[in-house]
Write a protein that binds this DNA or RNA. Structure first.
Lengths: 119, 119
DNA sequence: TAACTGTGTAACTGGCTGGTTATATAGTTG
DNA sequence: CAACTATATAACCAGCCAGTTACACAGTTA
């Protein structure tokens, strides 16, 4: 919540760091994994099953998310449980979703207007 | 500001749409272009010069950002001016930056603790 | 008209990356 | 011990993508 403003001529190093985080969120599979973890921690196998993807694939994505600090890993015997490190990620996703939808609405309206005036 | 919550078992189509937007922000050059546009609209040439990149490269990235709805294009004679479509993008970036930095801080602390206890 | 300028775009290339398959590793159970 | 289970990882491949170069397309100016 407590926002930290970015320096204004944005240094390349900052840009790279922030871009890395955005790119980490820029994959549908990873977003769906994050969403499945909304309700609490889950093991790799059950996540892969729910997603209908390979265990290896789920493991790789979960590893990336954990390395990026978005997930926290907890081992317990054979199983490995992941949980979200910071719930605020979902606010981020919601905000992006709202922004994208409003943009799409505007496009639809523009197309409608063009259609009525055009032909 | 008015958040729109995502549906909870996140459908693949939603995931793809949101991921696309995140991936659009997941490039350092594009982030620096967005940052240069904080102060107001700018032409392609001046942006490329400030960034120290090719005009063609800047044009391509600006086009992608405009197609994605993050920028708005305005032609005036030979020049083409871009401006940010929605200032809330910067809150997004600030939020991500804060989150990343706090994660890095945690890593540094962990390394410090390991160093003092380890050797 | 002919140069010149600002911008977009096509073609190409090197590198990154998501997915799969197979295997390695660690823990469990008989 | 051997078989089995859950996870991670290595190797590989196909597709995407950022950057460059060259060029096409306005729009301006002489």
């Amino acid at each position: 919540m407590a926002q930290m403003a970015l320096p204004h001529p944005l240094p390349a190093e900052y840009a790279r760091t922030v871009a890395d985080r955005f790119r980490l969120l820029g994959d549908p599979t990873r977003l769906m994994l994050m969403d499945l973890l909304r309700d609490g921690e889950r093991s790799v196998g059950t996540l892969a099953a729910d997603l209908g993807c390979t265990q290896a694939n789920a493991s790789k994505h979960l590893g990336l998310l954990a390395d990026g600090g978005l997930l926290i890993r907890r081992r317990e015997g054979l199983h490995c449980f992941y949980r979200v490190a910071d719930e605020s990620v979902f606010e981020l996703c919601d905000s992006v979703c709202a922004s994208v939808l409003s943009h799409l609405d505007a496009r639809v309206d523009a197309l409608r207007a063009a259609a009525t005036s055009g032909s």
